[in-house]
Design a protein around this nucleic acid. Structure first.
Lengths: 242, 242
DNA sequence: ATCATTTACGTACAGTGTACGAGAATAGGG
DNA sequence: CCCTATTCTCGTACACTGTACGTAAATGAT
């Protein structure tokens, strides 16, 4: 019992998903499509957040029976992967590159951030999910092209892309959380009150000082740009310089 | 629609948790403790992952009835916050700082990474959770102290800490996922086969080349250090230089 | 002893993902 | 044209989730 979970010997290709829808013409015609189901799930997540994406609600959205969804995705995890790749299709992959790999990489980071702001559930859905659907791959291809002027080896380029994506996701998640508390006055007030109390207890002098001298607030955009620039400017074109 | 999501009017202090255990002596004595319950939940997560942390299993672990847990934490979300702060207590906060703020910040990053590797559920639990328990605050205090030599204003220091934490979490999440697939031979083989197929389709020349010239593999440790150094070395001590 | 207060926890309920299987639709072969 | 294999739809059922509610027990103050 418990779950059987058995990661021991599942043994199915996790990427078989992306290959071969493979209709053989025989049998009943599908009444829905992966596209439609995925799009419905995305619409639901956009409107009400990731936790609103339940099999029942997605089914209702597309007008299908709940169990019919399982003909298009073997389980909910997979549906989430489909969602991630679906919205990744919004990322442009044909704009010309400038040839300045740092500038190109920064542009890629900004594209990712914009996508995540448009789909606030994306950072959460992305974390720990490592799927590589066609749209994700197309964007990866573009990032690798941007990195061509560097002399990084293949593994290092892939690592840079993963790192960049993770960094942007972490930043946007933080950004969204901050915006959410800022938009709810009572929540913001409660947090401010709590921090003030902590600062007043005498055990957190640095925090007290930081809160006392906040500085002028920057736009999230500016903060993101600053950190992204720092990260990318720090990257080295040649791996063997240290 | 779009974002409304309806957090509209919850309105309870989210930080009241950390203040006032406030026993007035009256009434039945508690048979358990927040500490014990939190520790049990952490042990469960360490052993079987975050999804094994259910109220029923935690209760069984500490020998309590399920509903008794709700006397110690108002809901599961809160229990997760308690868990985060609990393990944050493992972070040292009294080692002397060197005065070299970059080196100190790097050390802080390495401490965070070590903690997350010890508790692999931590990156997931951390993402989108923005609680500030006493241990988290103590560590924040330390980070602020490390940043004292800079001329950053308060908000910028806090931002640096949040950014660093997010960066480390993203990296470790990636690192853990990678280690997991590497450890399961069939999964790794399936992924390799899939990528090889994609590389062979002719539409992903950059990916094909990257896979063909992987370079010698680096340890996760080395990769982390490299990126962390890049990020921190890129930080500026003075906010007004651009 | 009474009473207000606090905690313990059994029961119950709405909601989750999904296994199973019965029925409907389709296409090819006789 | 029926037959049959195949593919799809989807109702029902089950194990499991978080937690609201209510009752019973324990405690300190009066």
């Amino acid at each position: 019992m418990t779950r059987g979970d058995g990661n021991g010997s599942a043994g199915v290709d996790p990427q078989q998903l992306w290959l071969s829808p493979g209709r053989s013409g025989r049998g009943r015609k599908p009444a829905f499509s992966r596209q439609a189901i995925t799009a419905a799930a995305v619409a639901l997540a956009d409107a009400e957040g990731l936790e609103a994406v339940t099999m029942r609600r997605v089914a209702a959205q597309v007008g299908a029976g709940v169990m019919s969804l399982y003909n298009y995705a073997p389980d909910k995890e997979t549906l989430l992967e489909l969602m991630v790749d679906h919205v990744s299709g919004e990322l442009p992959t044909t704009d010309p590159l400038t040839g300045d790999w740092r500038a190109d990489l920064k542009a890629i980071g900004h594209l990712q951030r914009a996508l995540m702001l448009r789909h606030p559930w994306l950072p959460a859905a992305l974390s720990a999910r490592r799927s590589l659907g066609p749209h994700t791959l197309a964007f990866l291809e573009r990032a690798l092209a941007a990195l061509r002027p560097t002399r990084l080896d293949g593994a290092a380029k892939l690592e840079v892309f993963a790192q960049l994506t993770g960094f942007v996701a972490a930043h946007v998640a933080h950004e969204i959380a901050q915006a959410a508390t800022a938009q709810s006055p009572d929540r913001a007030a409660a947090e401010a009150r709590y921090l003030a109390a902590v600062a007043a207890d005498g055990h957190h002098p640095e925090l007290a000082e930081a809160l006392a001298a906040p500085g002028r607030p920057l736009t999230p955009e500016a903060t993101f740009t600053r950190f992204l620039d720092r990260l990318i400017d720090g990257l080295d074109a040649d791996p063997d310089t240290d």
